[in-house]
Amino acid sequence: MAGPGPGFAVCVYCASSDGVAPHYVKLADAVGRAVAARGWTLVSGGGRRSMMGAVAAGARAAGGRTVGVIPRSMVEREWADHDSDELVITESMRERKQEMEDRADAFLALPGGLGTCEELFEVWSAGVLGLHGKPVVLLDPDGHWDGLLDWVAGLGGRGFATFEPMGRLRVVRSDADPVGAALDACARPVG
C-alpha cells in the first residue's frame, strides 16, 4: 500500500520497562525500521530503554526521523533518548501525551504494560467520541492484548458501551507481514 508519504507521522506506544522478552524488542525495532522505510516520522515517548528505545533506534538506523516526547522528571532520571532528531521536554505526563497526539497522524500500540494501555485507551476513546479522526491501530501478533479486547467486547453485552468502540480500533494479529499490515492500517483514513 502506497499510503501517505513524507510528512506523515505515526505515534508508537510501547513498553519502556526493562525485562521485556527479546522478541518484543525485535518487534519494536522492526516497526521503527518500517516507519522509516515509508518516509514517515516516528513520534515516541522519548525514552531510550526497552521497546521504546528500540523503535526509535530502529527508525534512525533506517534513516528515519524521530521525535521523542518526554517529561522533565524522566529526563532527570537519565531515561531520555538524546539521539532523537527532536527531543521535546514537557513538564508533565499529561502535556507529554497531548504533544504526542498533536504531532501524530495515526497511533500504533504495540505490546506493553499499564502505561501503554492507558495511552491506547485515551486515544481510542477520544476517537470514539469524535475528538479526533486519526487511525488507532493495535499490533498484537501473539495475543498479548486478548484479555483486554475480550473485556471491552463484553462491555456492550452488559450495557456499558455500544459496539462502536471495537469498530474504531484496528487490530492487526498474525499475518505474513504484521508490521506492514499495521502500518497499512495506520495509513487508511478513518470512516
Score class of each variant (00 low, 15 high):
A2I: 10
P4M: 07
G7S: 00
V10K: 09
V12C: 09
Y13Q: 12
D18C: 09
V20N: 06
D29K: 10
D29A: 15
A30Q: 15
R33K: 10
R33A: 10
A34E: 09
R38K: 01
G39Q: 01
G39Y: 02
G39M: 00
W40T: 00
G45Q: 07
M52E: 12
M52A: 14
A54D: 15
A54N: 15
V55D: 11
A56M: 14
R60T: 12
A62G: 04
G63A: 09
G64V: 06
M74Q: 12
V75T: 05
R77G: 01
E78Q: 11
W79F: 09
D81V: 08
D83T: 14
T90F: 00
E95R: 06
K97W: 07
Q98D: 06
E99G: 06
A104H: 03
A106L: 01
A109Q: 02
A109F: 03
G113C: 05
L114P: 07
G115W: 04
T116C: 07
C117H: 15
L120Q: 13
L120D: 12
L120R: 14
V123M: 13
G127Q: 14
L129W: 09
L131A: 11
V137C: 13
V137N: 13
D140S: 09
D140F: 05
P141G: 09
P141L: 03
D142I: 10
H144K: 10
H144A: 14
D146Y: 03
L148F: 11
V152I: 13
A153M: 00
A153N: 03
A153W: 00
R158I: 04
R158Y: 00
G159P: 08
F160C: 06
F163K: 09
V172H: 06
R173T: 06
S174M: 01
S174D: 15
D175S: 12
A176W: 02
A176Y: 04
P178R: 02
V179R: 10
G180V: 00
A181L: 03
R188W: 03
R188A: 14
P189C: 06
